[in-house]
């Protein structure tokens, strides 16, 4: 099966990618760059993580880089700040669905781990998933951080993941941990979703990373 890996500069998503590749699946990948709310180190780390996976599993990966900063500005200007992270993830899933179709991927693959951060509570995961019709494979869902870190070390992705990089500055200090789908959809009605998704797709940059 071919999956589209949503990859950040962090610890979890490269591990999710490695587990899928270990199980003989193929991958394409997508990274959402939050410039100017973060620094370029996150993008560099995501590219390096994909390079590590390609070298280790000897399979090519097409990596799409999307400028996500403009979407974040629209969300911040128009919507309830507490829902920022859920709305951000929903936007990512919509764009990912389009790229998955382009790359003939059957499902999305993420490094989400239940309740690790605010956007990954059971309620928020449900509210986020409703933005896409695609299946989302979450191989780390039941693992704790130490188990994920151990896997990251065993796959050789960990050291790259812990390099310094600026956290996203637009994350609210008190994000919602219990969002409801109808509440989230009401906020999204304040924006032109189609235009935002199209702008994101227009910003895409493709890196073909080969062994």
């Amino acid at each position: 099966m071919k999956l589209l890996l949503l990859i950040s500069g962090g610890i979890d998503s490269p591990v999710a990618g490695a587990l899928a590749l270990k199980s003989k699946h193929s991958l394409s990948a997508i990274h959402f760059h939050n410039h100017p709310f973060t620094d370029s180190a996150n993008k560099e780390k995501a590219i390096s993580a994909v390079e590590i996976l390609v070298r280790k599993f000897k399979k090519p990966i097409n990596l799409y880089i999307i400028n996500h900063g403009r979407s974040l500005v629209e969300i911040a200007k128009n919507c309830d700040r507490k829902l920022n992270c859920v709305l951000c993830r929903r936007m990512m899933l919509r764009v990912s669905e389009k790229i998955a179709e382009l790359e003939n991927c059957s499902a999305l693959l993420t490094g989400e781990s239940l309740a690790q951060v605010a956007s990954q509570t059971l309620w928020n995961l449900q509210a986020e998933h409703s933005a896409t019709r695609m299946q989302i494979v979450r191989p780390l869902l039941g693992l704790d951080k130490l188990e994920i870190e151990r896997l990251g070390r065993s796959f050789g992705t960990f050291d790259n993941s812990i390099r310094p990089a600026l956290c996203c500055n637009i994350v609210p200090s008190q994000p919602s941990t219990h969002s409801r789908i109808e509440q989230v959809e009401a906020e999204e009605k304040k924006m032109n979703l189609q235009e935002i998704v199209q702008n994101s797709l227009n910003s895409k940059e493709l890196l073909q990373i080969k062994p």
């Binding site: 100017p36 709310f37 700040r81 500055n169 609210p172």
Partner: peptide
């Protein structure tokens, strides 16, 4: 570079974030 109700990002040689709370990164 970016203007939102609770965060400004400006270019002052390097990127700088200015928060509503007064925090500057």
């Amino acid at each position: 570079e970016a203007e939102t109700p609770f965060l400004l990002v400006v270019k002052a040689g390097v990127g700088v974030s200015i928060f509503q709370s007064g925090k500057i990164i």
